[in-house]
Design a protein around this nucleic acid. Structure first.
Lengths: 225, 225
DNA sequence: GCGTGTGAACCAATTCACAGCA
DNA sequence: TGCTGTGAATTGGTTCACACGC
């Protein structure tokens, strides 16, 4: 199995393993089997073993995987042990919620600063961040080696803000605005579009209503995320 | 192509088509080609035609797809034209942000009520909702035919709240807490786990740093959403 | 020509079957 | 025996090639 090659699917599953492993570690568990992990994600256990093999970790026959070692290996593989720095643009409710989300720190994402272009907002304090004016963005990006821009701005502003951060050299954009962004080659956009969630759940409910008390439950099936 | 059969992949793309079509409709565009849609999602145009075929809509050779008709057909297919009703549990920052998110209404999701178990919060008004105590949840679920529970509670409370709503007959859970939920057969959980986003972006940045100025940009590639 | 629709071919992802090790 | 690791088989998703309609 070529390391360096990784499928999108595997890449999406890996953080889920990490989450489960963190829980197990907290509970004091030492070893875990591929079967156990597979049960949580509702996938085949062979798949788990393939995924683990991709990240380069080897388990121990009979005992399974060391919880701590595998979690660390995943962290290493994903680069979440290296600190990534982000700026957050748009200090509305969602922006504030994200600014104080403790999970980011846990996954090695540091928020350097929060920006907003509404004069009334600038200077306000949210979750320990003083809201800065967009004019100072370039300075912050340069000083802190910012790699990621988190966009929690209104739809109408999204493309403009996107262009701005791209012009400052940012190559990864985490877009929470319900807009499609156009970016040059070499820039990655991850769209966190809630509409997809609504649509998927709605579809599941609709089909489940169709066959009344349908037998296949898809219980706990992962909707990515 | 059997209608009724749909792949997870296709299901995830469909809301993105819907978003683009809504934009085009606003701009007054009448027709759109599979190639245009494909360009936005960075996929092959044949794929778009297959997806459209699955939802049951037929385009017109030469002109393409009618923007309005296709958007409506997607809405019909996903069941977003039928109103779905949800309750939101956990009136923190994230919960408040979601409660006022206008996109839900646009996608046919109506929030019936917002709950919180902190006595200090109950009675407060957020985004037009009076926060209700959990005790009144059963009554609301029964009166409004609630199908979806949106969980924006702390990690520690997530499983308990999940069990509660499942016991009330709710079969679709949209989980924003960084916890893995165990549910019985027949209940769907969609995990909206931000850690996945961090991990994916972090990984992309790491690999892009590895091959300096790597040629393949993955520009605008969709990270689901 | 310019677009959709679709079977066939291709390729990636998952599952099966079994080897190997403690 | 109980688990991982991995080639082989299978399944499923994507792309190709081309028929058809305007």
């Amino acid at each position: 199995m070529r390391s360096g090659t990784i499928s999108e699917q595997t890449l999406r599953r890996i953080p889920h393993y990490h989450q489960i492993l963190s829980d197990l570690e907290t509970k004091g568990e030492k070893y875990v089997s591929s079967k156990y992990l597979a049960g949580f994600l509702q996938i085949d256990d062979t798949q788990v073993r393939k995924d683990v093999s991709v990240i380069g970790y080897r388990g121990k026959p009979k005992s399974g995987y060391s919880v701590t070692e595998l979690r660390q290996a995943i962290g290493e593989y994903l680069g979440i042990n290296y600190e990534n720095t982000a700026i957050l643009i748009g200090a509305g409710k969602l922006g504030s919620a994200l600014a104080e989300y403790p999970g980011f720190a846990e996954y090695g994402l540091r928020i350097a600063a929060v920006f907003d272009n509404r004069p009334g907002r600038v200077g306000e304090l949210i979750s320990g961040f003083t809201i800065l004016p967009v004019e100072s963005m370039r300075r912050v990006v340069n000083s802190y080696d910012v790699g990621i821009a988190i966009l929690t701005v209104p739809k109408a502003a999204a493309q403009t803000v996107c262009d701005t951060v791209v012009s400052m050299g940012i190559r990864a954009i985490w877009n929470f605005a319900p807009a499609r962004l156009e970016v040059p080659e070499g820039v990655i956009v991850r769209n966190e579009n809630l509409a997809v969630g609504v649509a998927l759940l709605s579809h599941y409910l609709k089909t489940n209503k169709a066959d009344r008390m349908g037998r296949t439950g898809t219980a706990g099936k992962d909707g990515e995320g």
